[in-house]
Nucleic acid binder design. Sequence first.
DNA 1: CATTTTTCCGCAATCGTTTGTTCATTTATT
DNA 2: AATAAATGAACAAACGATTGCGGAAAAATG
Lengths: 337, 337
Amino acid sequence: MEKKLPTIKEIARRLNISASTVSRALHDHPSIGLRTKMAVKKLAAELNYEPNQTAIFFKQRKTFTIGLVLPNLREEFFSAAINGIEDVALDHKYIVLIGQSHNDLAREQKLVETMKNHRVDGIIASISSSTTHIEHFEQMKNYDIPVVFFDRVPDAKDIHSVSCNLYDSSVEAVEWLFNNGHKRIAYLQGPATLNMKNERLDGYVEAHKKHKLPVDESLIVSTDLSVEGTRKAIDALLLLKKRPTAILSFNDYVTLDAIQYARQKKLVINKDLCFVSYANVPVTQYVEYPPLASVEQFPYDQGVSATELLFRLIDKKLAGQESPYENIVLKSELIIR
Amino acid sequence: MEKKLPTIKEIARRLNISASTVSRALHDHPSIGLRTKMAVKKLAAELNYEPNQTAIFFKQRKTFTIGLVLPNLREEFFSAAINGIEDVALDHKYIVLIGQSHNDLAREQKLVETMKNHRVDGIIASISSSTTHIEHFEQMKNYDIPVVFFDRVPDAKDIHSVSCNLYDSSVEAVEWLFNNGHKRIAYLQGPATLNMKNERLDGYVEAHKKHKLPVDESLIVSTDLSVEGTRKAIDALLLLKKRPTAILSFNDYVTLDAIQYARQKKLVINKDLCFVSYANVPVTQYVEYPPLASVEQFPYDQGVSATELLFRLIDKKLAGQESPYENIVLKSELIIR
DNA sequence: CATTTTTCCGCAATCGTTTGTTCATTTATT
DNA sequence: AATAAATGAACAAACGATTGCGGAAAAATG
């Protein structure tokens, strides 16, 4: 069985020359004569020689692999981001190792560990909702593995990140609702771990400030992103004496759950209750009552940007240079249906 | 910069013993005395020693990596399958290299090539809709890299595969429609490359046979899975003098497009026109007019099954044994809403 | 023709780990 | 006490490719 693949040594043996000569010939090294170079290339082609990458990885201390740690692949947001990441990676002749944390810190840690063992050249990550600390990522500094966070960026300094500016579009979203006659706008926020840098809320507050309206704390509710959590949050809002007429909601998935539940409660969407959301995922096209507007976060572009940043870091590292911490912020855009 | 990580050699040097002793000590080799074993382990722990996997990969001719080639990650079907694959892989201490073909043959070939270069221990693939031949996969035999196809399985012999039996549930689906009073049932099929083994159609025909009804060829239309393609197919059906009252549709995504279009055309879904489909993806929960029924194809289980098969093949290969071609067929299930 | 320069290629080390073999020392056996 | 057996550890090769250095043969120079 186990046919063994042709190696440089094999070529060298057959041509009665040394392995180093074969290696140089294949790399068009100037110090190899045309005659032998041709002979080597000819035989290499005949034997269908292909360099053993694992040997090269080992020797070069590079694996041409980047690790990608994500909460999940189910959300179209992340699969779109992967497209961006994969495209850039393939351009650089890199390949992507993907792992899902399923929003579990322990699994996220294990993934990072495994990727470190596989000696990935760099890591791109969007943290899980249960990620309360990022030691496992910080550890990577000891291994000279650069880490770039995107979208779900931990609230820490000394990190590299790519994310969307959600503040401006949050202001815009809430103002848009005000301008459409809404007076009481609720904010359905995500779990605390994802709110450390709470741009959505800041924007929500700022819009109220601009319109000289007070912020009613009882209109701010939270969900852990589960269906149940979202329902409870909606329940809380519906129990209020003065109900909101619109909800700014953490993301489209939460919004879909919320809308479904509100309809069960016999509310008429876009009449009794309006939704504005984040992510602008394509599936909302198919639903009967989608959010009125959604903040596009350009996952593909975030992916591209994060990967490009990572490659810059890798290059710097190889050149032995330090890189300053970069925190790239992309624009988001309120898409009104 | 480039701090260098502790190696076995380093430990050996510090303890004034040989590298081989260190290696054996760390592996609890019986021929190492307790005294030195302890010393080695102690120092290894202090230095935070971790074996260099790339060196091991190289030496062992194993990378503990499996390649996964998919049409895309957007479809929840595939991301669910990945969950199954990832779970089994992690159990075996393997990691997954994911690549999307985006239904492009050239890209699929490139991915397979790249994965081969990375010396993956095995490949799991669901072919793209433009994959007209599978030479690139067959090539892998020359490199002793086993390939397991799942779900979208090419129509070829001498392959390993895992797929769902869609024949039985297709019969069941069409009979269910007959039993609900439908007389004219259309079949909206996918592109030719994915229909080589056309179980859906065979089931559709069989159901007609069982009910002693003729199959009207004009009721069988095709889509390339694009929105446009689906619309054209629906147009063709709507132009018929005797329109169908129900459509058996290739999958849920196509169905959502079809339903959206039919509604634009002022048809009342589930009255003028009913849909039964395949995949049973969760997003259909959120839409106003989902297909009445959908064939669940258990992507997670397919993923698990394919991965387990792959590991059996890898083990056999390492043991130097031949493996017979296995084509595992899982049950599917018609889910009625 | 003698010397310098250029051209071309081989030697050997290296990356970090594993493993078959050998060898010295200690312990057990008669 | 002499020999046999068991123990513990070192040596060296190997995996496949790369690369600095040195050196022989060929070409160019005076």
